[in-house]
Design a protein around this nucleic acid. Structure first.
Length: 424
RNA sequence: GGAGAGGUGGCAGAGUGGUCGAAUGUACCUGACUCGAAAUCAGGCGUAGGUGCAAGCCUACCGUGGGUUCGAAUCCCACCCUCUCCGCCA
């Protein structure tokens, strides 16, 4: 959520910067609602003050045994008038809130301006794509004999689901464990385990609701509020600090979690239909940082580096992209995507996305800390994949394939697989 | 699934229709006393919003949302959550 004070004071600037993301903020509506709010709020509060003082008088009069009928007659109209004012004000504030909740975050000044992914800026390339002296297979063909089973996934659940068996299942588990171990042992993250179903308040806190409900799997319950399957561990982990006031010395908080992620993929019909690039369910190791506002951009560099480290240790070639204003996610001030080399697609594909959300989520969540002046101040939140496990599995299969269809196990994973050097 | 209890300030805990934004204790901050500390004493100490140059004034907030009333922490309804006992269960 944007800072309403900034909207009041620097409306033109906000509008201009949101426009670089391709978002048209309805400034005229906002200004009109704000003006109306001001007068309506003042008049409502005047009426409330009047009611309070008259009611107080009635109480005093009654306690003295005086007749209160004249005073009651005096306030006869007040009740209806006040009720109408309060209703009107609530309606107005709902509208303002809707406007605010629907607006994306302001991009940082360092973010390249552009309208879509074509204008993202490559920051660096790491590693050299291997040259093959045989015809490369894609992960679907490579995985099939090793236990990558789309037919069963489809039978059990439908399209965009897969089942893993034997060596592939084991490699998948090894990848997740390797990532989580690296972040907790070497990068200073606290391992967390979280619910995979969360309430609407949590989804609203991180920004999935109210605007992106169609992207989520919703679980309705007859006698309780609905729950939502998490689309990323960012949701439960970031919400750890919802409605909390942290001590300054607790910051930064660094959490890492391995969870499944569930996405409806509404609107992506026909995209990546083959293979496990785009699934309704996939595993991901996620990093989340809760930091002091002054350090959030440094933290973004650090966190992105942690994700890069996984790719480097796995010796997978990748490139780092600075997303342009038009391609960034809803709540982000700045995002780096890491794209891994996929030989079969002869291209780089997203495997991690690392974002500094600034105060955007913290404001929705009311996640604060006591600052140096003793004031409650919003924290900044960051998150990044470190990494998407399913896509890493794809990358390992394709990059480490041999002419006979076997897969060489990356060195760092061997200890997780009982020393195994090849998947056959 | 059945039965019951309960959600009040950082924490504990009073308050069951009227000068209650809320007693009291505790924690915390400031000052006094002290060589210093402890103890003691005095004062301060919630959040959000409106308005004002400012001092200040005003409004809202006692789990959440509705309702009754001139007036609600207090009464009514719904929901959320926590705890206890029984049953079932990985």
């Amino acid at each position: 959520m944007l800072d309403i004070n900034q909207l009041r004071n620097e409306l033109d600037l906000v509008v201009e910067r949101l426009a670089t993301r391709g978002y048209t903020f309805n400034a005229a509506e906002f200004a009109a609602l704000e003006a109306e709010r001001k007068t309506l709020q003042t008049s409502t509060q005047d009426l409330q003050a009047k009611r309070n003082s008259v009611s107080k008088q009635i109480g005093i009069a009654k306690s003295k045994g005086e007749d209160v009928a004249p005073i009651l007659a005096e306030v006869e109209n007040l009740k209806g008038e006040l009720g109408a004012a309060e209703t009107a004000l609530a309606t107005l504030q709902d509208k303002l809130n809707t406007l605010l909740m629907g607006a994306p975050n302001l991009p940082d000044a360092s973010v390249p301006v552009g309208k879509d992914e074509a204008e993202n800026v490559e920051v660096l390339r790491w590693g050299t794509p291997r040259s093959f002296d045989f015809a490369v297979k894609d992960h679907v063909d490579l995985g099939a004999p090793l236990g990558l089973d789309f037919e069963t996934g489809t039978k059990l659940s439908g399209s965009r689901f897969s089942a893993l068996r034997g060596p592939i299942a084991r490699l998948h588990r090894a990848l997740a464990q390797f990532m989580l171990n690296t972040h907790t042992n070497e990068h200073g993250y606290e391992e967390v385990y979280t619910p995979y179903l969360v309430n609407a308040a949590s989804m609203t806190g991180t920004g999935q609701l109210p605007k992106f409900e169609e992207d989520l799997f919703k679980v309705s319950r007859p006698d309780a509020e609905p729950l939502y399957l998490i689309p990323t561990a960012e949701v439960p982990v970031t919400n750890f600090v919802r409605d909390e006031i942290l001590k300054a010395e607790q910051l930064p908080l660094k959490f890492a979690a391995h969870t499944p992620c569930f996405r409806s993929e509404a609107g992506s019909y026909g995209r990546d239909v083959r293979g496990m690039i785009r699934q309704h369910q996939f595993d991901k190791v996620e990093m989340v940082q809760i930091v002091h506002p002054e350090t959030s951009f440094a933290a973004l560099e650090e966190l992105t580096g942690h994700a890069e480290r996984i790719l480097q240790l796995l010796e997978l070639p990748y490139r780092k992209m600075a997303l342009c204003t038009g391609d960034m996610g809803f709540g982000s001030t700045k995002t780096y995507d890491l794209e891994v080399w996929l030989p079969a697609q002869n291209t780089y594909r997203e495997i991690s996305s690392c974002s500094n959300m600034g105060a955007f989520q913290a404001r929705r969540m009311q996640a604060r800390f006591k600052n140096e002046a003793g004031k409650n101040e919003l924290v900044h939140t960051l998150n990044g994949s470190g990494l998407a496990v399913g896509r890493t599995l794809v990358a390992v299969l394709e990059n480490y394939q041999n002419v006979d269809g076997s897969i060489t196990v990356p060195t760092v994973l061997r200890s997780y697989l009982g020393g195994l050097e090849q998947l056959v």
